[in-house]
Amino acid sequence: MFDFARFHILGRVGKIKTFEKNIRVSIAANASYKKDGQWVDETDWNEIVIFDKNTRQYVTESVESGDYVRAQGRLRQNSFKRDGETVYVVELICDEFSRAPKKKAADSAAA
């Protein structure tokens, strides 16, 4: 039997934070729900962590804030000490990352 905890996010890039051994990318994913008969849009922000060297290089060179991206990966629970207290987090470790093709300036001028 194969057990897993995975995530799949489609959304727009917010901030990209570069560190020595990883990159953290915040992604905004929109969701809609009905409240009192009206549709309400809600934005959920998720921060993924990329450790793979090639993927980090791709993000650094090719991805900008506002780009539409797809990220998949695994969930990992972790803990660390901060100011003497244990902090528990769930990290979204990205295994697959891609960016949707950008429209060319000529395409948008013709539209």
Rank of each mutant, 00 (worst) to 15 (best):
S26Y: 13
R24D: 14
D36R: 07
W39A: 09
K104W: 14
K35P: 05
K81V: 12
K21D: 15
S26Q: 11
I16R: 00
V89P: 00
T18G: 02
A5S: 13
K34M: 06
A31R: 12
C94M: 04
K34C: 03
K35G: 04
V59P: 01
I27K: 09
D52A: 05
I50F: 01
A100L: 11
L10I: 00
E47S: 11
D44Q: 15
D107R: 09
V69Q: 07
S26L: 10
A100V: 12
S32P: 00
A110K: 14
F19C: 07
T18N: 06
D44S: 15
V69G: 05
G73D: 04
K103D: 08
T86P: 03
D83S: 12
R76M: 01
G14K: 02
V87K: 10
V69N: 02
T60K: 10
K53N: 06
G66R: 05
D44V: 15
F19D: 10
V40D: 07
V63F: 04
F7K: 03
K53F: 03
K34W: 02
N54Y: 13
F4T: 13
V63T: 02
I93K: 06
Q77H: 13
K103I: 05
K17G: 00
I50H: 01
S65T: 10
S62Q: 14
F2R: 10
T55V: 02
P101L: 12
A109D: 14
W45P: 13
S108K: 15
T86R: 14
A5T: 09
I27V: 09
S32T: 10
C94I: 01
Y58M: 08
R12Y: 05
G11F: 04
A111Y: 09
N46P: 03
V63E: 01
V69W: 03
T60V: 06
R6K: 13
P101M: 12
K21F: 15
R99Q: 10
E91V: 05
S62P: 00
D107P: 08
D107V: 09
F97M: 03
S32E: 05
T86M: 10
D41T: 14
L92E: 03
K35F: 05
K21I: 14
A29K: 10
P101N: 12
C94E: 04
S26H: 11
F80C: 09
C94D: 02
D52I: 01
G14Y: 00
A5K: 12
I27L: 10
S79D: 14
N30I: 00
T86D: 12
N22Y: 15
A31L: 05
F2L: 10
S65W: 02
F4N: 13
R6H: 04
V49D: 04
W45C: 12
A106M: 13
N46L: 15
E85W: 07
D44N: 15
E42P: 08
R12C: 00
F7P: 01
A28Y: 10
A111K: 14
F2K: 11
N78A: 12
D95T: 11
A105C: 06
V90M: 13
A28V: 02
K15G: 06
K103S: 09
A28D: 08
S108V: 15
G11N: 01
A71N: 04
E61P: 00
K34P: 03
N54W: 06
I48P: 06
R56I: 01
K35C: 02
